[in-house]
Design a protein around this nucleic acid. Structure first.
Lengths: 214, 214, 214, 214
DNA sequence: CATGAATGAGAGTTCATTCAT
DNA sequence: TATGAATGAACTCTCATTCAT
């Protein structure tokens, strides 16, 4: 029975490796060529598999795409929730920490993050299955709630002036989204350096100063 | 020859009308269904023309798409340049005015603006002809320069604290882009009201407070 | 305006010719190789068109198939209804006439008829769109009603013994179906002669004698 | 060596059980979804085996299909031969008995019977290996000969009028085939009750009356 | 100038079948 | 013996684009 178990474990591992193999290939290609220009054949080739093999691991192309994004959005949402729940920090410190957190998330997997925002910003959502859209929206909503909660804390603590915390959360999200897309877009014509951290830090600094209760 | 001239003028007029007809149809459809899901046949039908006729006025689908966006980007760039050159306003007032300007531009043609940012954020750019990419980039750069100029003025005037004006310009652009995409994305699941103006105003207000000298 | 009209008429004609071209090709191939073994490419080749062109005239493969069958079933149903409504004949004479009618229908287009019964007898119905199934069923039902009506007339006239006329109608249908399929099946191994008429005539003769009153 | 023998016996038994397992699964699925819509994977799942295992017991999908049908056809042919050879009955009584016999055969395994007639009536035969077609045809021929023999006996006995006994046999076959397919087809839209016995009995009764020597 | 008809090229997807284990 | 994983070959269908008229 130990043998059967080991077998199963090994099989599971294999499966995970294959899935990762495919997701990695897809990630690279989606990032390089965009979603609709990337064919299953491309992905298969990049993953060194046959097109048909892709379908052993993913229901279809959309499923594959969504898997990529859900993965990261989940991570982001957990990090944000973690930050919000962090006991030892006041809101101002949390905003400070947020800068690194966002950059962390970006570095965790820049390609997917960019993909994710592309998805949010583009065709993608309109042609996704309602179920997938739902999952994505739920996670995004959770992220935004965490952000709003941080601002609410700041207002309650008297550190921030009294604005609608949901709107403030949205603004952070907007800045993060916009910054990632914009820096990415700039890098397309001039792939030299990565100004994201600088820009993002500056933006959050200024926003922080802007809502500080006098 | 008077006749020939009149003929030519009429022909030109006709051409412009047709082009506009097509661009309008395309705009609506790209917005509704996304770029890649919109077929030339769709556009032809909406414009009450034949698919083949589209090709009399545009080289191909990408060309059509780019035309749409260039149009608006040109407008935005002119407005921003106008604001920057405005003699009678100090930088702070210009920032205040910017809020309305951006909203104006959005209202001038929301569909195209969203399209434009989708383009910036998505597949599109990667599959565009270099020439088109170039045109778009040039115009975007001009917009950003104008924004940077405004901040530079503010710094020179001693009204804003001394940050890299280019970075500040980028931040405005980021906020504008991010806000339009995000509000649009929200409206997709809940097409009730339009919070763009509110959010944008708030963001710029806060940014304004955040960079105010002392 | 005469010109425009003529143009349109010519266009319509062209379309009809193309449709027929395709239907003819498909008919031959479905008959030769069966429905599922016949590819759109096959049909296109046989019709001397591109595969894509098929889709200009038919929504999809099923649509094409159903078109073929509906066409004939319609014809059969009209003939049967005509026979039933025939004033000058008594039921016995109608049964006699039926022999030729069925053979006529078979000869009108044997290939399609065989196809039709294959469809009724096979996979086909299970994978057809409900709408198509409905149309087919309705027409088949109309055929059967006409048959039943003839028997009812015979019973009323006192020429036939009193059996459920619907059951009698079914039996004719069964014999027709079975005979066509069986003779076809025989011809597959020995494609010499066509015993359908003989077999069918004999069967109907015997049935006729079998239900004759007294 | 006793051991080796036992081993072999056990192995044979195992094999038979597995084959039956697979055939049963296939039968259900072919009946439910039709032949071409049933995948090997479906069958494997239903039989609680792996797709690859199917190929240990059957050469390929067609082989599997044919096996199913041969099985029943063999049974039918034996029953018919048995009836024909029955000493104690006259032809009229045999015709009477035939009604039950056919119904028996139907009930013995309706699914396979329907399958069998589908096969006869459809794509299937055309794509079968000649060898299989041959086997099927031989068995079917034997069935028909038995039927013809019964009629021949009746004619010799002076009970039936003098028709070609082969044609009469065909007619019974036609009625049986047609009835099974037609009732099945009706049950597809209205799966209530099973009128096969009634219809078949009536048809044979009428045919019997129709050929009775005065 | 405008078009209806046509198509080449290719997309996503499925599935019977094989093979290393 | 049995299998999970893999694949080649095909299939249906789509669409940007062209061309005769």
């Amino acid at each position: 029975m130990g043998i059967a178990e080991r077998r199963e474990r090994e099989r599971d591992l294999q499966q995970k490796i294959r899935r990762k193999q495919i997701l990695d290939a897809a990630k690279r290609l989606f990032y390089e060529k965009g979603f609709s220009a990337t064919t299953i054949e491309d992905i298969a080739q990049e993953a060194e598999l046959s097109p048909a093999a892709i379908y052993l691991y993913f229901k279809n192309k959309d499923d594959l795409y969504a898997s990529l994004n859900l993965q990261l959005l989940e991570y982001l949402s957990q990090r944000l929730e973690g930050l919000y729940r962090e006991e030892g920090l006041n809101a101002e410190e949390k905003l400070e920490t947020l800068k690194d957190l966002l950059h962390d998330v970006f570095n965790f997997d820049p390609l997917i993050l960019i993909n994710l925002f592309h998805l949010q910003a583009s065709d993608g959502l309109k042609n996704l299955s309602p179920e997938r859209t739902n999952q994505l929206n739920k996670l995004a909503a959770r992220c935004l709630r965490s952000l709003a909660n941080i601002f609410e804390q700041g207002i309650t603590e008297g550190r921030f002036i009294d604005h609608n915390p949901i709107a403030l959360g949205d603004i952070i999200w907007i800045v993060f989204t916009g910054a990632v897309l914009w820096e990415e877009s700039k890098r397309m014509t001039d792939p030299r350096k990565d100004y994201l951290k600088q820009t993002l830090d500056l933006a959050i600094d200024i926003l922080g100063r802007g809502i500080k209760a006098e």
